[in-house]
């Protein structure tokens, strides 16, 4: 909305530099990574049509400690992509979205940390206790 305020220089794009740009880069990177995992994941789930043994065998690979840590990374990537996606929707559709995009990114980061701390604990709890138990 144009206002009666004195003419200002165009604000440019929020996608150039600082929070606006790096959040976009991270959105792309996490999006591409999650997509490739999704392709693999639909196919590994499709093994339920081959045999229970085939499915259980591939799911067991998701339970080893290295994969378990990568699952934390996957959940972190999806969670960032989801939260930042909501921020993008707010920037595009909420009239004050572009003005608050920076604050919204730091809100995304804060929510991400608050969810990931307990989330990581629950995801790794069993793996860590088994590793400590076997020492």
């Amino acid at each position: 909305m144009p206002s009666a305020a004195p003419a200002r220089r165009p604000a440019g794009t929020l996608y150039r530099g600082r929070e606006g740009m790096w959040s976009w880069v991270a959105h792309r990177v996490t999006g591409v990574l999650v997509f490739f995992f999704l392709l693999v994941h639909v196919l590994d789930t499709a093994l339920v049509r081959v045999s229970p043994e085939a499915y259980n065998q591939v799911i067991d690979t998701y339970k080893n400690p290295v994969m378990n840590v990568m699952e934390v990374g996957l959940v972190g990537a999806v969670l960032y992509h989801a939260l930042n996606g909501l921020r993008i929707i707010a920037i595009d559709f909420w009239e004050r979205g572009p003005r608050y995009q920076r604050q919204m990114l730091w809100t995304v980061v804060a929510v991400w940390v608050v969810v990931m701390v307990p989330g990581t604990y629950f995801m790794l709890e069993r793996t860590i206790s088994e590793m400590l138990g076997s020492v």
Partner: peptide
């Protein structure tokens, strides 16, 4: 997808033992 995927991840990876209880 925010609801569908985050719900899926919460159930499959975090709640009640997470990935360790998944099998056929």
């Amino acid at each position: 997808l925010v609801v569908l995927v985050l719900g899926h991840l919460l159930i499959m990876n975090i709640l009640d033992g997470g990935v360790h209880r998944i099998n056929f």
